[in-house]
């Protein structure tokens, strides 16, 4: 019995910590790899105008984006003003209506965020707005940056 007691008092109480950094690094690398910074590549340039009267969109899942701006061409060149929804450039603007109508049936509280390049002309913006009206997606948001004075 006495030998038994002696054994009990001797066990090592340290948890091996040599592999802890590896575990942490693994976590770090896992999150770095799985983090997606941008879901879809924007193929038009959208340099947003600045404004003061801002409202925030807190619920990101309600938002659908429409990008309007000059198309990015290879070699830092800019092409004609194009409209992009999700990851596709829209060839015929009347297609906007059906795309937005489909999105609206999936999310009735849809907010359309218009990311329009500041050099664009109002003509194409108005055409897109008319399509949005026809689709019934009436809540829009002109995306702008904060004006710093």
């Amino acid at each position: 019995m006495s030998t038994h007691f002696k054994k009990k008092s001797k066990p090592k109480q340290d948890i091996p910590t040599a592999s802890l950094p590896d575990i942490i690094f693994m976590l770090l690398i896992f999150f770095m790899v799985t983090t997606v910074l941008r879901e879809n590549e924007v193929r038009v340039r959208t340099q947003l105008p600045a404004a003061e009267a801002l409202t925030k969109i807190d619920q990101k899942r309600l938002v659908s984006y429409v990008w309007i701006g000059p198309e990015k061409l290879p070699g830092l060149q800019l092409g004609n003003t194009r409209v992009q929804i999700d990851d596709a450039l829209i060839e015929d603007l009347s297609g906007v209506r059906s795309i937005m109508y489909r999105k609206l049936t999936e999310q009735p509280k849809l907010i359309v965020s218009l990311k329009v390049d500041e050099t664009s002309e109002m003509g194409i913006v108005q055409e897109v707005e008319q399509e949005l009206r026809q689709a019934g997606t009436l809540r829009i948001n002109y995306s702008t940056t904060r004006l710093v004075q």
């Binding site: 950094p21 942490i24 690094f25 976590l27 770090l28 404004a51 009267a53 801002l54 409202t55 925030k56 969109i57 807190d58 990101k60 938002v63 907010i111 965020s113 218009l114 707005e129 949005l132 009206r133 026809q134 019934g136 997606t137 009436l138 809540r139 829009i140 948001n141 002109y142 995306s143 702008t144 940056t145 904060r146």
Partner: peptide, 27 residues
């Protein structure tokens, strides 16, 4: 490693969309 992890956790800002909200008139 923890310090690095916490630094990136703190400095990462999930950018909130800002803009001018409007409601279009019905067709």
């Amino acid at each position: 490693a923890f310090l690095l992890l916490i630094f990136f956790l703190v400095t990462t800002t999930i950018n909130v969309d800002t803009g001018i909200g409007m409601v279009l008139p019905p067709p």
